[in-house]
Simulated scan of single mutants.
Amino acid sequence: MRCPYCGADNSQVKESRQTEEGAAIRRRRACAICGGRFTTFERVQLRELTVVKRSGKREPFDRDKLARSIQIATRKRAVGEEVLERMISGLVRQLESRGESEVTASEIGERVMEALKGLDDVAYVRFASVYRNFSEARDFEAFVTELAQSVGKGGAHEGEDD
């Protein structure tokens, strides 16, 4: 594994342990050249996925890009790292298990929104504002009104004080 500090190819595994309920292995490494320490993760990948963008452009699926967008939506929210990691792993497994090697960006976005809706309403609205390209306050208002109506019809927060 290449050292992120000096670029050397010579690193040693100092510690390994399972994470994500056995779905990944976390390895703590040390560079033999500069002594820098870093962590890597090893996960099972069922298939190579290609994301088809709205423009028609195709690019390799990037788990880290998915994780970054979810972390931005959940920033400063009471959502634990382990919960996010399980959610991201679950989303990736869903996508890989579809049987298709190509997935549209809109399908990924809808799946993320569905997962966030059940996790945190604020993160859900934040993600939706970028994904659905809100351009003015009215867009937020309409979306939040729709969310409030769905919650009132048996959603996850029914009966809670506002």
Rank of each mutant, 00 (worst) to 15 (best):
E15W: 10
E15S: 06
S16V: 05
S16M: 09
S16G: 07
R17P: 04
Q18R: 11
E20L: 15
A24S: 11
I25H: 01
I25W: 05
R27L: 15
R27V: 13
R27S: 14
R27W: 13
R28T: 09
R29E: 15
A30S: 14
A30F: 10
C31E: 10
A32S: 09
I33Y: 10
I33P: 02
C34E: 05
G36A: 12
R37H: 03
R37N: 04
T40H: 07
T40M: 10
F41T: 10
E42C: 04
R43D: 03
V44S: 14
V44A: 15
V44W: 13
Q45A: 10
R47E: 11
R47C: 14
V51K: 03
R54K: 15
R54Y: 13
S55A: 08
K57P: 10
R58N: 07
E59Q: 03
E59F: 01
D62P: 00
D64E: 12
K65R: 09
K65Y: 08
K65H: 08
L66H: 00
L66F: 04
L66W: 07
L66T: 00
S69Q: 01
I70D: 05
Q71H: 02
Q71A: 15
Q71T: 06
T74D: 12
R75T: 08
R75Q: 15
A78P: 07
G80N: 09
E82L: 02
V83I: 01
V83M: 11
L84N: 00
R86Q: 13
R86N: 14
M87Y: 03
I88K: 00
G90C: 05
V92D: 12
R93I: 15
L95H: 04
E96N: 02
S97R: 06
S97W: 03
E100P: 08
E102A: 09
E102L: 10
E102D: 13
A105F: 07
A105S: 13
A105L: 08
E107I: 09
G109N: 02
G109V: 06
E110P: 04
E110W: 06
R111M: 10
